[in-house]
């Protein structure tokens, strides 16, 4: 079995509601996969299942061939799968450096080694000037970056980002895009990204996985997804028949998506 994060036939029921229905997804260590779909389509539920926060009713999650479905989140993290949340969760009373360092400490490294890793990451992402700033004092965009650094410091092989661009302005979003692009090749860490910012998703992801009402309705490259009538119908907006232009900027075409973006950004 090659090095992959693989979810197979995941079924997740909530009190009679089938939140995920036979969803299968895989993520390699050198790719960026986008997980998209309308609100309530099961994206975050799937991330919760992958990260071990929810136990699926059926199906399995494997990391590099090892079945981790029944593992608690902590053990899954130790196996190389780390996630972030829709809202940033940094240790607010601690400095940027300490936050990043904690990622490495969490992975069980010694303090001296963790210090080296934290310093390297901070240097690599060019936030040296923020090193000793309390993480509470950062802008939202900076917090996002620090959170990603903290995850990378664990040495994770698969990183799940739940709406990393939510709450960021255009400029911050662009900056984030630039930073994320290089992660798979630099760190050998595959990214699974949920986001509603289609502009970001389409440019960033090698592959897309589209959910609707708990079911996979399409998989493929950005171009394939844009051209897929089912996806356009369900998510990108049926008015977007004009094609790529509108699909690349679905907020203009789809009232639901537009709403979502507005609330996330306010």
């Amino acid at each position: 079995m090659s090095e992959r994060l693989a979810a197979d036939g995941i079924v997740m029921n909530f009190a009679g509601l089938r939140a995920l229905d036979q969803v299968s997804l895989s993520l390699g260590r050198h790719e960026i996969v986008g997980l998209i779909g309308p609100n309530g389509s099961g994206k975050t539920t799937l991330v919760n299942v992958l990260a071990g926060a929810l136990k699926p009713n059926a199906g399995s999650v494997r990391i590099d061939g090892e079945d981790v479905t029944a593992f608690p989140p902590r053990r899954i993290a130790r196996h190389g799968l780390v996630r972030t949340f829709q809202t940033v969760r940094l240790f607010g009373t601690m400095s940027v450096f300490e936050n990043v360092q904690l990622g490495a400490l969490g992975a069980g490294l010694r303090r001296s080694k963790a210090t080296t890793i934290a310093n390297e990451l901070i240097e690599l992402f060019e936030i040296e000037d923020l090193r000793d700033v309390s993480s509470d004092a950062l802008s939202y965009g900076q917090k996002r970056i620090v959170e990603i650094l903290r995850s990378l410091a664990t040495g994770c092989k698969y990183l799940l980002l739940d709406e990393p661009a939510a709450g960021l302005n255009e400029e911050e979003s662009e900056h984030l895009l630039g930073q994320l692009t290089s992660i798979p090749e630099k760190f050998g860490c595959g990214l699974l990204i949920i986001d509603h910012d289609m502009n970001l998703i389409m440019r960033l992801c090698h592959r897309l996985h589209v959910l609707n009402q708990g079911k996979t309705i399409a998989e493929g490259t950005a171009d394939e997804i844009r051209a897929n009538p089912t996806v356009v119908e369900a998510y990108l907006g049926s008015q977007a028949t004009a094609g790529a232009d509108a699909a690349a900027n679905p907020t203009a075409a789809n009232p639901t998506a537009a709403n979502h973006t507005v609330t996330e950004r306010s």
Partner: peptide, 13 residues
């Protein structure tokens, strides 16, 4: 960190 956000700390391993 545990006093700050214990669950997050666990999620880091």
């Amino acid at each position: 960190a545990a006093a700050d956000d214990f669950r997050m700390l666990q999620l880091l391993g």
